[in-house]
Computed example of a mutant assay.
Amino acid sequence: MKRILLFLFVVFSLSTVAKQKIKNPEVEYTPAWIEIQTIEQTTNATILHCTLHNLPNNWVRINDKIVLQDAQSSKSFKLLRTDSVKTNEQIWMPQSGSKSCVLYFEPLSKNVKLFNMIEPGTPPYEQTYGIQLKSTTKK
Rank of each mutant, 00 (worst) to 15 (best):
M1H: 13
R3L: 09
F7N: 12
F9Q: 11
S13A: 15
L14G: 11
L14P: 03
L14E: 10
T16A: 08
K19Y: 10
Q20G: 05
I22M: 02
I22K: 03
I22W: 03
K23M: 08
V27L: 04
V27A: 02
Y29T: 07
Y29V: 06
T30R: 11
P31V: 05
A32S: 13
A32V: 14
W33T: 05
I36T: 09
I36G: 04
T38V: 11
I39K: 00
T42L: 04
T43G: 04
N44D: 15
A45K: 05
A45T: 05
T46Y: 06
L48I: 08
L48P: 03
L48V: 07
H49P: 02
H49L: 04
H49T: 14
C50M: 09
C50T: 15
T51H: 03
L52E: 02
L52W: 00
P56Q: 04
P56T: 04
P56G: 02
N58M: 10
N58H: 13
W59T: 07
W59F: 15
V60S: 01
R61T: 12
I62Q: 00
I62S: 01
K65V: 12
K65W: 07
K65N: 14
I66V: 13
V67M: 06
D70K: 06
D70M: 02
Q72V: 09
Q72L: 10
S74H: 09
K75G: 00
K75V: 03
S76H: 07
F77I: 06
K78Q: 15
K78I: 05
L80D: 00
L80P: 00
R81Q: 15
R81T: 15
R81H: 14
R81F: 07
R81V: 06
K86C: 04
T87P: 01
N88R: 11
E89F: 01
Q90N: 14
I91A: 03
W92Y: 12
W92S: 09
W92Q: 14
P94M: 03
P94H: 08
Q95N: 12
Q95W: 01
S96K: 05
S100N: 14
Y104M: 06
E106V: 05
E106C: 06
P107G: 05
L108T: 01
S109T: 11
S109K: 08
K110V: 00
N111M: 04
V112A: 00
L114V: 13
F115N: 00
M117E: 05
E119A: 08
P120K: 03
P120Y: 02
